[in-house]
Simulated scan of single mutants.
Amino acid sequence: MTDDRAAPTFVVGLGCQRGCPVSTLRALLDQALQAHRIELEAVKALASIDLKRDEPGLQELASQLALPLLYFSSDELANYQQRLSHHSQIAYERTGCYGVAESAALALAEQLIQAPAKLLISRQKYAQATLALAGAA
């Protein structure tokens, strides 16, 4: 009996400082996926906090990759606080949540798969950006 389920749904959560260039975000993404042997095609969407809605680097990355970019409020992201691998006081002071990349990845993964998600790549930091990847648990 074959398993006809679709390929796994992976989503990438991103956090970045204001003005972070798309090249930095792309380098972090490529590096993380390569290190974990995940194909870029497996990534179905990007997520961040709504405070970054007007961040050109994030928008450009989504455009380059032809992926949807969804945003969550700090209240929505705060629901994932207990599941984060890292709690950043600076992130909390600036955004109201302890980790944008991980919580955004979890929030979007659970929204897309309608089931619990888990972090498959915990918080990676590079220059002005952070990244995490979540998928089905």
Rank of each mutant, 00 (worst) to 15 (best):
P68R: 02
P68C: 06
P68H: 08
L69P: 01
L69V: 04
L69G: 01
L70N: 04
L70W: 13
L70E: 11
Y71P: 06
Y71T: 00
Y71G: 03
Y71V: 06
Y71Q: 01
Y71L: 03
Y71R: 04
F72W: 14
S73Y: 06
S73D: 06
S73I: 12
D75P: 01
D75S: 12
E76G: 03
E76A: 14
E76S: 14
E76P: 08
L77H: 10
L77G: 11
L77K: 11
A78W: 05
A78K: 10
A78C: 12
A78G: 01
N79C: 14
N79A: 15
Q81A: 11
Q81W: 05
Q81N: 05
Q82S: 06
Q82P: 07
Q82C: 06
R83K: 12
L84V: 07
L84Q: 02
S85H: 15
S85C: 11
S85T: 15
S85V: 08
H86C: 10
H86P: 02
H86L: 15
H86F: 12
H86T: 11
H87F: 07
H87A: 07
H87D: 04
S88T: 09
S88H: 03
Q89A: 12
Q89I: 11
Q89L: 14
Q89S: 13
I90G: 07
I90C: 00
A91C: 07
A91L: 06
A91W: 11
Y92C: 07
Y92N: 13
Y92H: 15
E93F: 01
E93Y: 01
E93I: 04
E93M: 06
R94A: 15
R94M: 12
R94S: 13
R94H: 15
T95S: 01
T95W: 00
T95Y: 02
T95A: 00
G96P: 14
G96V: 08
C97R: 07
Y98V: 04
Y98P: 03
Y98E: 06
Y98C: 12
G99N: 02
G99E: 00
V100Q: 04
V100S: 04
V100T: 10
V100G: 08
A101Y: 10
A101M: 09
A101L: 06
E102A: 08
E102L: 05
E102C: 09
E102V: 05
E102D: 09
S103N: 02
S103L: 10
A104D: 10
A104G: 12
A105T: 11
A105S: 10
A105C: 08
A107K: 14
A107N: 13
A107Q: 15
A107I: 09
L108C: 08
L108F: 07
L108I: 03
L108E: 09
A109G: 15
A109S: 12
A109Y: 12
E110H: 02
E110Q: 13
Q111P: 06
Q111K: 13
Q111D: 11
L112C: 03
I113V: 05
I113F: 03
I113M: 08
I113A: 01
Q114V: 10
Q114L: 08
Q114W: 14
